[in-house]
Design a protein around this nucleic acid. Structure first.
Lengths: 189, 189
DNA sequence: CGACACATGTAACACGTTACATGATTTG
DNA sequence: CAAATCATGTAACGTGTTACATGTGTCG
């Protein structure tokens, strides 16, 4: 639903053709969320099917320009007026993964946490690096990067939190001492 | 892809039937991400189609029990061993919305931010309230809630950050003084 | 008995995603 | 001229999601 609304909103600002829409989208979100051009066209087709956009017959340069209809404008307005639903947040794959990892035997939970932490920190550094590239002109792009940074930082903190929680709840195995019981080779084997 | 992997991992721990799978999933993620039972069955069908699970013919009580195949075990192992990709994070609807809001004229960006902040804080309080309900038994459920709390907190901080960024970059309109220019009624009208 | 939870499944659709085909235009 | 970019589109598929049909068992 994100792309659909995004493209519609961009069109609401100014009629455009497909290729242009992709440029405008990526100018705002940068390389973070690359957008396959094909998707722009499929999305435009579906928006037209739903009566939210229509083709602006007269083109300046033979391009397939689309314009937002009245219903489309209403939808854009509603999108901006309504907050993103946080009562039912989108499923977080990492949270699900850890929730399952801690409840089934035979999974190296600490390994999962560590691997994720390393990867997230790497991504975080990449975001900071990209941020240093942006000028004040790219306000939108910078804000998106800030969002990613904030999210990644929260994720790292959460991972650390999980680890300490885990250490308290279920002390880590001592590698040198008595060998772990062989009872559970079920899941990962 | 989240649900698919989650159900597969739960099955890897122990063969189960559909209804049971849903219970196990919701026992770990709580009411946050409710799972329609129908989805369990469609997912199971697809997992079977891909050769990751198979029906365990003999049932204890006439239930349609599924069991993970060798290929399925490999997939589960790979899932736990591979960190969630943070190089290409999932699209964040809120970030996209704000990125567009700040770049098209006629959108009340501060209104969008405020509305979102209120809603996110409300969700945050709800998470905290739910957390007080959980016992030490529900380790997974508590960790999921913590994740949501950390994410929501980061979101609130980011929203505040956006607002101050915006104030510096583009001073807020003074309501009492000279009426705003009528040039742009384009987008929202 | 009636309502409700348990249990299984199917059909239809939405959005997102990629691979492919095709042509015009620009540029080294 | 060859390669790259611009530009438009289609076909096919994947997961997620819901609405519906259907039947069994249980409990007040």
């Amino acid at each position: 639903m994100s792309i659909r609304q995004a493209l519609l909103s961009l069109l609401a600002n100014q009629p455009m053709y497909g290729y242009q829409l992709r440029s405008e989208f990526e100018a705002r979100t940068g390389a973070t969320w690359p957008l396959n051009v094909g998707q722009v066209y499929t999305t435009l087709t579906r928006l037209e099917r739903d009566g939210l956009v229509e083709r602006a017959g007269g083109d300046d340069d033979g391009h397939a320009v689309y314009r937002v209809t009245d219903a489309g404008h209403a939808e854009v307005q509603a999108w901006f007026a309504t907050p993103v639903d946080r009562q039912t947040p989108p499923r977080d794959e990492l949270a699900i993964k850890l929730a399952i990892a801690v409840t089934v035997p035979g999974v190296d939970v600490r390994g999962v946490i560590q691997a994720q932490r390393t990867d997230t920190v790497r991504a975080l550094q990449e975001y900071v690096r990209l941020k240093s590239r942006g000028t004040d002109e790219d306000l939108a792009w910078l804000l998106v990067l800030d969002s990613l940074v904030f999210q990644a930082e929260a994720e790292v903190r959460w991972l650390d939190h999980c680890e300490s929680r885990l250490a308290r709840h279920r002390p880590p195995p001592v590698p040198a001492a008595a060998p772990a019981p062989v009872t559970d080779e079920s899941v990962v084997r």
